[in-house]
C-alpha cells in the first residue's frame, strides 16, 4: 500500500472518529438540555426590583426541579390577559389576581408567601395623621383620600370594601380620591398623609409594619381608622395543564424553604428567602381566599365585576 493511500485511510479514520465523538458529545448535550417553562411574577414596584427579588428564587426552583424557568416580570394590569394567552406555566401574584385567574382559568393554588406579623395573610388599613382629628369611618365624608394601585387587595380593594360596609360610597362621599403614579405606590400613600397632602390613605398593614420596622415612621404618627379582616398575601399558582406531580414538587420546594436555603445566583451564593423579602411559604386552601372573593363582589371588582 502506497504512503498516499495509507495517509488517505488514516485521514478518513481520523475524521470518522472525530465525527463520532462530536455526535456523541452533541447527544450528551441533547440529553442534558432541560425543559423550559415560564413563571410570571407580578411587578410590585418595577421590573428591575422584581428581577432582583425573585431571580434567586427562580434559579433555586430551576436547579431543584431541573427545569429552566424563565422569570417574566409582568405588569399587574396585563397579568390576566397574558396568562389567558398561555404565556406562563406558573404565576406569582397578589391574592386578588389569584382569584381572578382561579375563577377564569382554574389556576391551581400552590403556596402563599409569608411576610410580616400575619404570616401568609395581610390586611388593608385606612390611616390619618394623628393630629388630623379623623378617627372613624364616619369622619371620612368630604375628605381627600389616596388609594394604592387599583388591583392591590390591601391597598385598594380592602379599604374600598371597608368604606362600603360603613355606608360610605367612595365615588360620591369623598371630596376626592386618587392613586399615585409610578412605583412605590404603597409608601407614597403613607407619605401623602404623613406630609399632610391627603387626609386619609389606604395603606397595606404590611407596608406600615415594614416602614415602622425600618424606622421611617412610628406607630404614633397615625390613627388607624379601620382595618379590614385578614386575607391571604401573595400567592404562587400553577396553570391547569401543569402535571400534578410537577405542581406538587414545586409546592413542596416552596414550603421546604428555610431562611438558611441558599442558591448560587450570578456567581454568588445568596439566601433565597432573604433576597425575595419573604419569611417563608404556607399552605393555605382555596377557601381561605373567600374574604377576597367577598370583598371583590361587594366592591364590584374583577372577577365579579358587573357593568
Amino acid at each position: 500500500m502506497s504512503l498516499g493511500i495509507k495517509f488517505i485511510l488514516k485521514s478518513v479514520a481520523g475524521l470518522v472518529l472525530l465525527l463520532l465523538t462530536g455526535s456523541l458529545l452533541a447527544g450528551c448535550d441533547a440529553v442534558k438540555e432541560r425543559p423550559k417553562m415560564r413563571i410570571g411574577y407580578m411587578n410590585c414596584n418595577s421590573e428591575a426590583e422584581t428581577r432582583a427579588r425573585f431571580g434567586p428564587l427562580n434559579e433555586y426552583l430551576s436547579q431543584k426541579l431541573g427545569i429552566d424557568f424563565e422569570l417574566v416580570s409582568v405588569d399587574t394590569q396585563e397579568f390576566a390577559e397574558r396568562f389567558h394567552k398561555g404565556e406562563f406555566d406558573f404565576t406569582h401574584t397578589n391574592s386578588l389576581l389569584y382569584i381572578i385567574l382561579r375563577e377564569q382559568k382554574n389556576l391551581r393554588l400552590l403556596a402563599t408567601e409569608k411576610r410580616g406579623q400575619y404570616g401568609p395573610r395581610t390586611a388593608g388599613t385606612l390611616i390619618s395623621r394623628k393630629d388630623s382629628g379623623i378617627k372613624t369611618l364616619a369622619d371620612l365624608k368630604g375628605k381627600y383620600l389616596l388609594f394604592g394601585p387599583q388591583l392591590a387587595p390591601s391597598g385598594f380593594l380592602a379599604q374600598y370594601d371597608l368604606m362600603l360596609q360603613a355606608g360610605i360610597n367612595p365615588e360620591q362621599d369623598l371630596a376626592y380620591y386618587g392613586i399615585p403614579r409610578g412605583s412605590f405606590k404603597h409608601e407614597k400613600v403613607v407619605y401623602g398623609v404623613y406630609f399632610g397632602k391627603y387626609d386619609v390613605a389606604a395603606a397595606p398593614a404590611l407596608d406600615l409594619e415594614l416602614m415602622i420596622r425600618d424606622g421611617k415612621i412610628t406607630a404614633d404618627d397615625f390613627n388607624i381608622i379601620a382595618q379590614s379582616e385578614i386575607f391571604p398575601y401573595c400567592t404562587f399558582g400553577a396553570a391547569r395543564q401543569i402535571p400534578d406531580e410537577l405542581a406538587e414538587k414545586f409546592r413542596m420546594l416552596l414550603l421546604d424553604l428555610t431562611p438558611e436555603s441558599t442558591v448560587t445566583y450570578q456567581s454568588e451564593t445568596v439566601k433565597v428567602l432573604d433576597s425575595a423579602w419573604i419569611d417563608g411559604f404556607a399552605q393555605l386552601e382555596d377557601a381561605d381566599y373567600d374574604p377576597i372573593r367577598r370583598m371583590a363582589k361587594n366592591a364590584n371588582m374583577p372577577p365579579y365585576q358587573e357593568f
Partner: peptide, 13 residues
Amino acid sequence: RAAALLKLEELER
C-alpha cells in the same frame, strides 16, 4: 388591635 400590633412592631426595634 391593628394599631396595637404596629406599636408592638415599633417596640421590637
